[in-house]
Design a protein around this nucleic acid. Structure first.
Lengths: 195, 195
DNA sequence: TAAAAAAGAATGAACGTTCAGTTTTTTGTT
DNA sequence: AACAAAAAACTGAACGTTCATTCTTTTTTA
């Protein structure tokens, strides 16, 4: 068990070092040698845990996306009213993206570059299924506009990544009021006007 | 003159090759040797036009951003009513992002990674000044919500990049109706409710 | 003491960049 | 209009470095 724990620690050190390096200088700045040095490990050791560099990146992406999604659906109950359920998920996602900016910035890079396998990207997307289910229901109830899931995501979740980028780049911190404005903008963009 | 034209052609070939390679495999897939081969040029020749690789990337970014902005403000007149002016700019940007996907995808990568210098990024942002001016006016007229420029951008322009990504990744083409839905979502997110 | 885990050195390939030499273009002279 | 001389543009090969990965040896664990 102690042995197992040690292994997990090493693997996590490697994953952590990779996030740091990718965030600082992009994929090409994260060489296996640098990752090993920061993780206090021999380059060869990385290959005990990962098949190769691409596998390391893929695993790191899925790992981080899972962290993200486990927080996204905190306190969420599919039985809640549509708007309330959406509000809970949205604020969960916003607080993850704005507070866990290390993880968020890494995910944002993955989602906007060819760093990660197409297949692995797809697996990451599927983790958001409860949100797409909620949207589906909202449309049936005529609470949410009858537009594609892509549009719903583009106008409610994706913008948060931009805010996170700004926060990281300019040190501009978003307070509670800004967050409220952001949520209202998100909801206004997808709600049906009659509600 | 013929000489000058030839130089421009070579420089453009280099810039074009770089976009292609970055789009296919990210920054780290665009080595100087590969760029040279695709541009039908010697690696050494690249250094006649660019100081180094970073300078090539920076110039390419600014170049492409300028293309983008010159289209963004097509047919736009600051004297137009706020919503109409916004509509024109928004559709210009959308058609650039969705039709010129080569250029758009490259810009999207630049905006979400540490590929480009912070200074060069800033220069690119400043090119959108007419849009920020329009928003400022819209707020004064109580037509647009009194929220930060970051939020306005995050909820109207940034989402288009997501749609472009989807289109590129899944071949899912957005028709006129989808575009209308996207514009409505953008406008709904920032308009003041009373209007 | 056997096996599992980790290390460091070594591998060839690829990297960004430079340099010495060649080709192409321009210029000046007839 | 022809042609050498000077300048500019361009090249392939080579530089030292770093890359991802592997191999052999040592250390740690059970």
């Amino acid at each position: 068990m102690a042995q197992l724990q040690k292994s997990i620690d090493k693997k996590n050190a490697i994953l952590n070092a990779t996030i740091s390096l990718v965030n600082e200088g992009g994929f090409q700045a994260a060489s296996m040698a640098k990752i090993a040095k920061i993780a206090n490990v021999s380059p060869a050791t990385i290959y005990l845990y990962f098949k190769n560099k691409q596998d390391l990146i893929n695993q790191l992406y899925l790992n981080t996306k899972q962290q993200f999604c486990s927080i996204a659906f905190n306190n969420y109950d599919p039985l809640l009213p549509t708007k309330k359920g959406f509000e809970i998920i949205w604020y969960n996602i916003a607080s993850f993206k704005l507070n866990e900016s290390r993880e968020s910035y890494f995910l944002s890079q993955c989602d906007n570059t060819p760093m990660v396998d197409a297949e692995t990207l797809q697996q990451g997307i599927e983790l958001l299924e409860p949100l797409t289910e909620l949207w589906k229901r909202g449309k049936e109830e005529n609470v949410i506009k009858p537009i594609s899931l892509y549009l719903l995501y583009a106008y409610t979740i994706y913008p948060i990544a931009f805010l996170m980028n700004i926060q990281k780049r300019e040190g501009h911190v978003f307070n509670k009021n800004c967050l409220k404005n952001a949520f209202d903008a998100a909801w206004d963009s997808i709600k049906l006007a009659t509600n």
